[in-house]
Design a protein around this nucleic acid. Structure first.
Lengths: 142, 142
DNA sequence: CGAATTCTGGATGGGAGAGTCCATTATAGG
DNA sequence: CCTATAATGGACTCTCCCATCCAGAATTCG
């Protein structure tokens, strides 16, 4: 897989939160069932999203998680960064000084990929999600 | 980093082989110096490229590695596949049946990323490399 | 043939990501 | 005020990727 597992888990969770009615919240047990992410591990992931101020958490009876901003204001890159995913890997050759004026031989194709993924993650927001379900009839075995 | 370390190593090696004069070959020691990939590990990586028939290997005195085809005929996706990198992760939610007619909510943005990366890896070849060097003055610490 | 060179391959170790278990803290509601 | 609920946090395990060590097989050169 291209993105790491934790990043995908984060996207699943955020997508599910986006599908909630305004003002509604969901606890980690229900969220785990809908997303297929192991409960205990999902807790860790959610914490990262809370710390990054993308998600609001509420403890105690009736508590749970909800988005902290409007879906339109949450870019994918914000989610991925919150999950500690580093999209900008630097020079493919590991050169200390590699830039467009002094590029390594991999620079053209490498920067092409970087731009492609940066543009995707930077321009898409949770408002770009589809109308489809956030929970499946059947899920593939992990 | 987006791609895993081994995949990047593979691209570095292939880029360096591409920069050789026609008919020339290079042994793993020199290749390791130029690419910054640890020798012993580079051997494993090179073996994968050989098995995938992208690289020709020659043992004994004066042996080494060289490209098996013209750079134009080697796509990036061929290299990445040889390194066991799986670019097609399937549905982001892990749904068993997720397709354009019955999509999950993440489907739009997910497929957008898939297309972006598939197009990049499928359309680019080693002929698209730049003229820059394959070995740096200084390299970042790993 | 003999020796140096070079790739091949197995075995092993370290570390980070993924996942689990359990104790603790905070909070709503009766 | 008490209890059930729910998030938080620490400690631990497991697995796979990255990396290293070393023995073995093939091939060229003198």
């Amino acid at each position: 897989m291209l993105l790491n597992q934790t990043a995908v888990y984060g996207l699943r969770a955020m997508a599910t939160l986006t599908s909630l009615a305004p003002g509604e919240s969901i606890n980690v047990i229900a969220l785990s069932e809908r997303t297929g992410v192991p409960q205990q591990y999902l807790s860790k992931v959610m914490r990262k999203l809370v710390v990054a101020r993308l998600v609001r958490s509420q403890r105690g009876h009736g508590g749970g998680f909800a988005l902290m901003k409007a879906p339109r204001q949450i870019r994918l890159i914000d989610v991925l960064r919150a999950i500690d995913l580093d999209l900008d890997g630097g020079c493919a050759f590991g050169f200390a000084a590699c830039d467009p004026t002094n590029p390594c031989t991999l620079h053209p194709i490498w920067s092409k990929m970087q731009e492609c993924i940066q543009e995707w993650a930077g321009d898409s927001t949770l408002a770009d999600l589809g109308p489809g379900p956030t929970t499946p009839r059947t899920r593939k075995a992990p």
